[in-house]
């Protein structure tokens, strides 16, 4: 394999995709190392799925280039297909086929050698917890079962790289947790996992994250790096009664970007916490609030992403106002 040239499992160089006038993916540059769990985050329509589809050879790119397992996505798409597993949020199984028939079908398509076939099939059935349902039609299975069966079918051929496009959408929390245990297990065996999601808790599981917004990569780093270095603002957390009224008061203060309900308390995005904390304390004390104790906290990933996206929106706002 010529994948050793770069040492990366996946590389993107100025990768772009346009649909007519709409730029879905705008010159992405990215490298994903072998054995990494790379999380691709962003709101709906940001270009996550489009990027994955270009990497898997489902969509031809409109510009730029990329490699997967060392193969060029433009020239060697068919070679790439032997080295990847792909699973989308649709859990593409044949619902009118039984669990076993689905597995047999995909293991035939991937030409799994006869001696390995049985072992892999049992592995998938065991992994998906479908021992009692092996001859049930796939249509009757619940979301979590379908999800694991779809993953099993996608990695029957033990590919070194797996692409997962919102693999946990529509699945209950326990199934999600089990699913991520499985992903960890695979990554532990050296498999590269490229996953898109918009669940922040799932993002925390990833080794590295890329945030994509309106087709552009706006942040890249480990969850820790993003939380500590990416934010220009700081976060102050406080707990009080009637938080909704307090929100209004706090937002009037200078140096406060905005405040949002967060669990039982409030998260306030401020320019400088050192200045904001006493100001908030004073303001709320004047309004009759007691023992609010605002303090600076490390932002959650959600805070980081909301702040990054809002910052990006502010940059583009002048144009936006005009066109409206």
């Amino acid at each position: 394999m010529n994948g050793t040239e770069t040492g990366y499992a996946v590389t993107l160089t100025d990768l772009s995709k346009r649909f007519g006038d709409f730029v879905a993916v705008d010159r992405l540059n990215l490298q994903v190392g072998r054995g990494e769990i790379f999380g691709f985050l962003g709101p709906n329509g940001a270009g996550k799925s489009t990027t994955i589809r270009m990497l898997c050879g489902i969509l031809p790119p409109s510009g730029g280039s990329g490699t997967v397992a060392g193969f060029d996505i433009g020239k060697d798409a068919e070679e790439i297909k032997k080295n990847i597993g792909y699973m989308s949020q649709k859990f593409s199984l044949y619902e009118d086929l039984t669990v076993e028939e689905n597995i047999d079908f995909y293991s035939g398509i991937y030409r799994i050698p006869a001696i390995k076939k049985r072992e892999r099939k049992e592995w998938v059935i065991e992994m998906a917890g479908l021992r009692e349902h092996r001859s049930s039609r796939t249509a009757i299975l619940s979301g979590g079962w379908k999800q694991r069966l779809a993953l099993g079918c996608a990695i029957l051929h033990e590919p070194p790289i797996i692409f997962l496009d919102e693999p946990t959408s529509g699945v209950d929390p326990i199934s999600r947790r089990n699913f991520w245990d499985l992903i960890y297990h695979l990554a532990g065996q050296g498999v590269t996992v490229f996953v898109t999601t918009h669940y922040m808790d799932e993002a925390e599981y990833c080794d590295r994250l890329g945030l994509i917004y309106r087709g552009e990569l706006i942040a890249l780093g480990t969850p820790e790096e993003l939380k500590t270095h990416q934010m220009t603002e700081e976060i102050v957390e406080l707990f009080c009664d009637h938080p909704q009224d307090a929100m209004g008061l706090i937002e009037e203060l200078p140096g406060v970007r905005h405040a949002a309900l967060f669990g039982r308390g409030l998260h306030v995005v401020v320019e400088r916490a050192a200045a904001a904390v006493p100001a908030i304390e004073r303001k709320l004390a004047d309004a009759g609030y007691t023992a609010v104790q605002p303090e600076r906290i490390i932002p959650s990933l959600e805070d980081v992403f909301v702040s990054l996206i809002e910052a990006r929106d502010r940059q583009e706002a002048p144009q936006g106002e005009f066109s409206r």
Binding site: G57, K81, I84, Y86, K90, S92, L93, Y106
Partner: peptide, 11 residues
Amino acid sequence: IGTMEQMIVTP
């Protein structure tokens, strides 16, 4: 039903 996409990524 979306299986076409899955078929495309197989060899």
